[in-house]
Nucleic acid binder design. Structure first.
Lengths: 129, 129
DNA sequence: TTCTTCATGCGACAACTGTAGCACGTACGC
DNA sequence: GCGTACGTGCTACAGTTGTCGCATGAAGAA
């Protein structure tokens, strides 16, 4: 079972990225909690949040696990793995350049730890040849 | 009539970007020509190419003009404008950073002229506040 | 026990995308 | 004049995404 192959990861669209960000930040959450966290940025109905998450489970982006009778959702792909997918795509198609320089841009922000940046870099490197 | 407002530009998806690249590079082309240029990268049927282009006309990304009885398609948005849309999106959502540093990455490649890079930069700047 | 509140599983429907095919008309080679 | 080759306008149909609502069942409040 290949686990970190960037190229075979499913696409991540805008909505999905929003949800993933919440899960990456807060770990496993109940649907209701995810919905609340989304609250400001998003005006979805609760059922919409659930549908999107449920579909992400189907795509393998999110994992659903029963915890004392309550369903918790957790990101199934790491943040570096998800970002790698997006960065590679952007570098290839828009920049038409190697993704490496893009990675260094993350260093300016605070979204990623140094550790995650290294991991991101590694993932992009590894899928290169 | 606002002409270069990045934020109101329609989304540009992967297929559309492919077509736009051809048109940016070669100017106005007949559907058949576009299809041929796409040939290597793309295994669409000719009718698919036409459908996608026609839809792009509807979205205002491409313009169709009759030339001596033949329809020619031409990009309606400039390359810097299109790229601005994509860069802004990526910077906002993935990098969670200002788009300016991304622009400087274009300097490394040869896809854009210095002039276009300036224009791209200007467009991103102007839509900022 | 009965009422109220949620979580959860399902179903729905419209818009957008991927991917074509068909029919008609016109221009051109024979 | 006729058949052949395209350009063009339409139509189609399945899969994905956006966006919800409904019904059922379990758990807690009264």
């Amino acid at each position: 079972m290949k686990k970190t192959n960037v190229t075979t990861l499913p696409e991540i669209n805008a909505s999905e990225l929003d949800l993933l960000k919440v899960l990456w930040r807060e770990g496993a959450l109940a649907a209701r909690e995810v919905h609340t966290r989304l609250g400001e940025r998003n005006s979805w109905a609760y059922s919409t949040t659930r549908t999107v998450m449920e579909r992400m489970v189907g795509k393998g982006l999110v994992e659903k696990k029963l915890f004392h009778g309550l369903n918790l959702y957790e990101a199934k792909i790491s943040r570096p793995a998800g970002l790698a997918r997006l960065v590679r795509n952007f570098a290839d198609r828009v920049l038409e350049l190697d993704p490496a320089p893009v990675v260094s841009l993350f260093a300016e922000g605070e979204a990623l730890s140094a550790e995650e940046i290294r991991e991101l870099s590694r993932l992009l490197e590894e899928a290169k040849p």
